[in-house]
């Protein structure tokens, strides 16, 4: 299988503090890769380095085959990104948001129109297309935000704790969207601290104090750490943490 994201001893230091400490991993094309860790373990920093939002202190990494130091611009064209903070504009309508994001990725008008129509149909939001995003319930906004993150059909999408504050039903629906995207060949890199979500991933890595302590399929991890659920695995590993959560 083709490796679409690789990291080798990737490190980020802020002064004396090493936020991410020599992490190495490789992610296969089309994989759903769960990036787990307690708050402050360094997962957001690691993800930001891969997206080009943060400059690594040392180590190497490639995203979609491009080097994160030198080929930043090419990486930007190959990834979608959904941040922790909800990232659609409340004072724009659903369609205007899509037109905007399609626009800044340089999509053609025809592409934007067709894609918008198909997304609205898929989410059963045809009637809400001209409503302001601010008037929609949080769950819908989140699903829309995900659709917008993959609007330009990127090979990889980074999701930074996409399901924070959403009810379990919406989370299930959200994950079914992730599966659909994955089936369409999009590689998913997702951070979360919901352990039930970790079970949905093909493979997960668990970060503790800036290091990757474990990386395997959920089933294998449970076996190795002799735990019934991912919760158990996580607790066993996270207990080693010495760093205070931020």
């Amino acid at each position: 299988m083709e490796k679409i994201i690789t990291a080798h001893k990737l490190t980020k230091r802020f002064g004396d503090f090493t936020a991410v400490n020599q992490i190495s991993f490789a992610i296969q094309k089309g994989e759903i890769f769960g990036f787990l860790g307690a708050n402050g373990a360094g997962k957001t920093t690691a993800m930001r380095m891969l997206c080009g939002l943060s400059m690594p202190s040392s180590g190497e990494a490639t995203v979609a085959g491009f080097d994160i130091y030198r080929e930043n611009e090419k990486i930007k064209r190959s990834i979608g990104y959904m941040s922790q903070k909800f990232s659609l504009y409340d004072d724009l309508t659903v369609k205007e948001n899509m037109r905007f994001y399609g626009g800044i990725y340089g999509m053609t008008d025809t592409f934007i129109r067709d894609k918008t129509a198909s997304i609205l149909e898929q989410l059963h939001l045809e009637k809400e297309g001209d409503k302001l995003v601010g008037s929609l319930p949080l769950g819908w906004k989140q699903k829309l935000a995900f659709s917008v993150a993959i609007f330009h059909d990127p090979p990889i999408v980074f999701l930074d704790e996409p399901t924070g504050g959403v009810d379990p039903v919406t989370r299930r629906e959200f994950w079914s969207m992730i599966y659909q995207a994955s089936a369409a060949g999009i590689t998913i890199f997702v951070t979360t601290h919901y352990m039930d979500e970790a079970e949905y991933c093909n493979r997960v890595s668990i970060m503790v104090d800036g290091r990757i302590e474990a990386l395997d399929t959920p089933a294998q991890l449970k076996q190795t750490y002799q735990a019934k659920s991912m919760d158990g695995v996580f607790l066993k590993l996270a207990r080693k943490a010495t760093r205070a959560a931020d």
């Binding site: 064209r77 941040s83 994001y101 800044i104």
Partner: peptide, 11 residues
């Protein structure tokens, strides 16, 4: 709002 991040991740 966090939208600046999205912008900086875009091309």
């Amino acid at each position: 709002m966090g939208t600046m991040e999205i912008m900086l991740v875009s091309p």
